[in-house]
Design a protein around this nucleic acid. Structure first.
Length: 228
DNA sequence: GCGACAG
DNA sequence: ATCTTGTCGC
């Protein structure tokens, strides 16, 4: 496990953070189809917190096309930004980038726990990570945030648009029969159809994609194993 | 001003 | 996110 250092120019205040989002949003690439599901590697990232000590542990888990784990990395950092809805990236990204950066493998598509385009300023965690790394990325969230959607048909594979007014910012995707959908949005260098196909393929047996499940398990394990 | 609000 | 007992089901 490596140690993450927050960049010196990382925003400190909420207004600075919003300004960064507004400045970087234009660097999103949204006209690429993206990697085809079932080809190449996919990497899941997630974080776990120790509120007492203000620590955050990030994990990155690389899967191959058959969903076998091929590499894992973790990083520990200091929490440098409080949780503010819409500004999640500023809390998680420095440590996530450190974990991603310590991988020897090419990450391929990065799957984030949160949003991409489905964001008040269209620049959630997944898009931010994509712009900073240049990697294709998607966001798969467990909640619809403030966006509206119809409940998809009860069977696996059913989808319905996630709407901000009339704009489709993502999709509710049912990954297992009868279970609550997940909320998929585009991050960087991939289209929404492809993002949803990847999500379904990554979730053959559980509600959440294997990328998220394995990254979540790894960062919790790493946090628990940290010296007191 | 008040409530809602990814993780 | 995290705090937490029991409970239902494969």
């Amino acid at each position: 496990m490596i140690t993450a250092h927050t960049p010196a120019d990382w925003p400190t205040t909420e207004s600075e953070a919003r300004a960064v989002q507004d400045a970087l949003r234009g660097r999103l690439i949204l006209d690429e189809a993206g990697p085809r599901p079932g080809t190449g590697r996919v990497t899941g990232v997630d974080v776990a917190y120790d509120d007492e000590r203000d620590l955050v542990v990030a994990a990155a888990v690389v899967l191959d096309a058959s969903l076998e784990t091929v590499e894992e990395a973790t990083a520990v950092g200091r929490v440098s930004f409080r949780y503010v809805p819409g500004l999640l990236a500023f809390r998680e990204l420095p440590t996530v980038l450190a974990a991603l950066g310590s991988l020897r493998s090419d990450p391929g598509l990065v799957v984030c726990d949160g949003y991409g385009l489905a964001h008040p300023r269209r620049f959630g965690l997944a898009g931010h990570l994509g712009v900073l790394t240049g990697l294709p990325s998607i966001g798969v969230a467990k909640n619809p945030f403030t966006f509206l959607h119809q409940d998809p048909d009860r069977r696996r594979g059913a989808v319905s648009p996630l709407l901000d007014g009339t704009e489709e910012v993502g999709r509710a995707v049912r990954t297992q029969d009868g279970v609550k959908p997940v909320f998929v949005s585009v991050g960087h260098r991939i289209d929404l159809d492809n993002a949803c196909e990847h999500t379904l393929r990554l979730a053959p047996r559980h509600r959440l994609p294997e990328t998220t499940r394995r990254a979540d398990a790894l960062c919790r394990r790493a946090l628990a194993g940290l010296p007191s």
